[in-house]
């Protein structure tokens, strides 16, 4: 297949994943802003930092007013990471890779872009926000369903999957990066209700608060949350899960092409070196350092994939 097409499939999947992750972040931020207005501004700031949009937001706005943040993250055309911009980029990539997509996948992508455009024509009222965010998640589920149900399991499929899991790992790691201080065991106010709410927010922003309680019971502890998000292999947004998926797809590419690329070696060492140890040892080495290092390795892997498979010249 064309390198450009592989790149388009990779980026289509990344942008779709990003739109869904950002919808989740907005959802979690909105919940805190509603229930605890005193910390709303700080919370919105951390949401923007996690999504990598804080600098741009502050260039355009004075304060972290809920309505303004939500509008900026949802539909500001001047914000290249707004959900509207991101879904447009996903669709542009899908159009470029159109000949490699089934009709079902293309139509799902195109329909979600059209639906989103209609929903985000005007500023979203607070009471409509949950519906809009739910619709974004639903549209993504449609694309995912069509993708898994109709696409050939060939190299194109692998490139799209790589995009999905690179983006997802990046997102989970960023959430941890912004909130890591809440997870440090040494912090004095541990166990207070403030932290419980904050921790719930972390779990909500990866849609995993139910799964967590189902797994660990009612006790919320920093160590367990970190373990759950970093090492727990059955949790589909954990770093370990994403790493496994990336390696599976890289392995399939190796089998299809008969070539072991640098990207394949990087992918497998990323998992082995960073994620095959207990959570205690990660904390001992410094949670913040660990996450920073993971984010760097993940970005380097993305670049290597781009080079090895000739996405661009």
């Amino acid at each position: 297949m064309l390198g450009k097409t592989a790149g388009s499939l990779f980026w289509m999947a990344r942008y779709l994943e990003r739109s869904e992750n950002n919808a989740r972040l907005i959802d979690a931020g909105f919940r805190i802003a509603l229930t605890r207005s005193s910390t709303a501004a700080a919370e919105w700031r951390s949401v923007l930092v996690t999504a990598g949009q804080d600098v741009r937001f502050r260039q355009a706005h004075q304060d972290y007013h809920s309505q303004r943040v939500v509008d900026f993250m949802l539909r500001d055309p001047a914000n290249p990471s707004s959900i509207l911009s991101v879904v447009k980029q996903a669709r542009d990539n899908a159009r470029t890779a159109r000949t490699y997509l089934t009709r079902e996948v293309w139509e799902a992508v195109n329909t979600s872009w059209m639906a989103l455009g209609a929903q985000l024509k005007r500023q979203v009222r607070e009471d409509d926000l949950p519906d809009v965010l739910a619709a974004i998640r639903q549209n993504n589920a449609l694309v995912r369903g069509a993708f898994s149900g109709t696409m050939l399991r060939n190299d194109g499929y692998n490139f799209a999957r790589l995009g999905t899991f690179l983006e997802r790992a990046d997102n989970t790691a960023r959430i941890l990066d912004v909130k890591y201080y809440l997870l440090l065991p040494s912090v004095a106010h541990i166990g207070t209700s403030i932290d419980n709410v904050q921790w719930e927010t972390i779990l909500r922003s990866v849609s995993a608060h139910r799964a967590y309680h189902w797994l660990y019971g009612t006790e919320i502890s920093a160590l367990k949350i970190a373990e759950f998000l970093i090492l727990y292999k059955q949790m589909p947004r954990s770093l370990a899960f994403c790493c496994d998926q990336m390696n599976d797809n890289l392995g399939l590419l190796q089998r299809a092409y008969g070539v072991e690329t640098d990207a394949i070696r990087m992918g497998s060492s990323m998992c082995r070196e960073r994620l095959s140890r207990p959570i205690g040892s990660i904390f001992d080495g410094g949670l913040h350092e660990f996450i920073t290092d993971f984010l760097r390795a993940n970005a380097a892997l993305a670049q290597q994939i781009e080079r090895d498979y000739r996405f661009v010249e």
């Binding site: 064309l2 390198g3 450009k4 097409t5 159109r98 000949t99 092409y257 498979y309 000739r310 010249e313």
Partner: peptide, 27 residues
Amino acid sequence: ADQMGAELVEGHDLRVVDGRVAMRTTQ
């Protein structure tokens, strides 16, 4: 392109290699 089962290329996917016009594939 889709209906013919042919690749859909743009100028930047192509270059001249060994006297032929060639497209940049993943391999």
